[in-house]
Write a protein that binds this DNA or RNA. Structure first.
Length: 431
RNA sequence: GGUGGGGUUCCCGAGUGGCCAAAGGGAUCAGACUGUAAAUCUGACGCGCAAGCUUCGGUGGUUCGAAUCCACCUCCCACCA
């Protein structure tokens, strides 16, 4: 892909929120491979969907011949970015941040190619901040920032102006640290561009300013839009919380299901944001779906692309197998092997307790993680929305767990497929 | 340090002695309708199958009875110094 068409493609996908002078940027990219960076702060032991867009953006640049630097914020993660946050964040211990940094590193490596001499670079800002002493920091770096400008930034404005909140000096300093990153990466690797979410604009321009002052270098910035949902709720959340990229935290099956359930109003936008499918193909798909009666194909395409990308083709196959078995409506088609396979493929499964005479169904299903409170199970029972091996259960069976989970009732002497509502499935097995 | 305002169930936000497990909205869950979509309608929404149990920043107190009154403590905010 030529330089020009990369930016054009990004714009066509709606992936550009803001950028520094477009002409200069395009020209800069035309002159040869650009080294660019994006930072990821370790705020948990895994990246989640919110990180995916910038991460894939690095990949888009790499695919177009540029050289990405993935920066893990081992130092900035210790401070906490106040940008557009309405509350001061709780500090995490150094050991935890260190550990999380390692987690992020290995995840990032799955998306970007770090091999070879021209390969991407993995950096950690802890390496150049940890040893800076206070006086050097204040004299050599701090001197280039005016508090007036720092306060004026939109990203901290509300924290400073708003009642009921404050901004600690610690977090206020964050923008200086991030700016310092850019200046360092510019010195060390010739990095001339920073990308990030639109909330990072203030931090990015801060880095551009610092790099110009200290290194005398001209650099560029580009931000990505915040991913929004048509219904106004936050993108990337499910009832269980964030959708993680770590298969141990969000199973490939759950991940696949997440995308499959994307509302029509969002799905084509998401295809452009998250997949590498050409925009023209996506538009063609949208047109085809419009012509079609009933269910669109887009969600399926999106779910397959994303699951394959994040978890690999095998995990995708597993997710599809489970989906096929659970949503095709007929469980009798499943063989004993299929049940074992479902469990292996990541369908949540729990052993049936040996002593369940007195256990109500509510407790049983809550313990298995199917619902967060007995009330929810009770509600479902009252509406006959709990289905055990194709048999709907009502409230009157709540105390009949021993009967329902007897060896005679089990499929192949061992399995029970329990459905709560339309979408929640759980496998129980006798031991 | 002084003065004033405030801390209510996941979030916002009512409630100023019994009718309060606590209005209303949002989020969430389930049902109907659909396409595992949206919109709409219905129900649930502190915990418990239930009897019942535990909440309104904390601790004590007044009272037959407190989220509501009193004391002290604590945290937040505004203004003043």
């Amino acid at each position: 892909m030529s330089v020009n068409s990369l930016i054009d493609d990004l714009k066509a996908r709606g992936l550009v929120a803001q950028m520094t002078n477009e002409e200069e940027l395009v020209e800069h990219m035309a002159q040869g491979p650009v080294t660019l960076y994006c930072g990821f702060d370790p705020t948990a032991d895994s990246l989640h969907l919110g990180h995916l867009v910038p991460l894939l953006m690095l990949k888009r640049f790499q695919d177009a011949g540029h050289r990405p630097i993935a920066l893990v914020g081992g130092a900035t993660g210790l401070i906490g970015d106040p940008s557009f946050k309405d509350q001061e964040r709780q500090l995490n211990s150094a050991g935890v941040v260190q550990q999380w940094s390692e987690c992020l590193k290995s995840q990032i490596s799955r998306f970007i190619d770090f091999s070879g001499e021209d390969g991407a670079i993995l950096a950690n800002n802890y390496d150049w901040t940890a040893s800076v002493d206070v006086l050097s920091f204040l004299r050599d770096i701090g001197k280039h920032f005016t508090v007036n400008k720092m306060i004026a930034k939109e990203s901290v404005k509300q924290r400073i102006e708003r009642e009921g909140s404050g901004l600690s000096f610690t977090e206020f300093t964050y923008q200086i640290l991030q700016s310092y990153d850019f200046q360092q990466l510019n010195s060390q690797y010739g990095c001339t561009m920073q990308i990030g979410g639109s909330d990072q604009w203030g931090n990015i321009t801060g880095g551009i300013d610092l790099t110009r002052r200290v290194n005398g270098a001209s650099t560029h910035g580009l931000t990505l839009p915040l991913i929004t949902k048509s219904d106004g709720t936050k993108f990337g959340k499910t009832e269980g919380g964030a959708v993680w990229l770590d298969a141990a935290k969000t199973s490939p099956y759950a991940f696949y299901q997440f995308w499959l359930q994307t509302p029509d109003a969002d799905v084509y936008r998401f295809l452009k944001f998250f997949t590498f499918l050409p925009v023209t193909d996506i538009e063609a798909l949208e047109e085809a779906d419009r012509q079609r009666e009933g269910r669109p194909q887009a969600q399926q395409v999106l779910a397959e692309e994303m699951t394959a990308l994040v978890h690999g083709v095998e995990a995708l196959e597993a997710a599809r197998r489970i989906t096929e078995a659970l949503f095709s409506g007929d469980l009798s088609m499943l063989s004993a092997d299929d049940y074992a396979q479902l469990q292996q493929d990541g369908l949540p499964a729990t052993a049936v307790p040996t002593e369940l005479a007195d256990l109500p169904l509510t407790t049983l299903l809550v313990d298995a993680g199917m619902a967060s409170s007995g009330k929810q199970v009770k509600d479902a029972l009252q509406r006959n929305a709990v289905i055990i091996n194709d048999t709907a259960c009502g409230m009157e069976q709540n105390m009949a767990a021993a009967e329902l989970f007897s060896a005679e009732a089990a499929r192949f002497g061992s399995y029970f497929l329990v459905k709560l509502g339309k979408k929640k499935h759980h496998l129980f097995y006798l031991v």
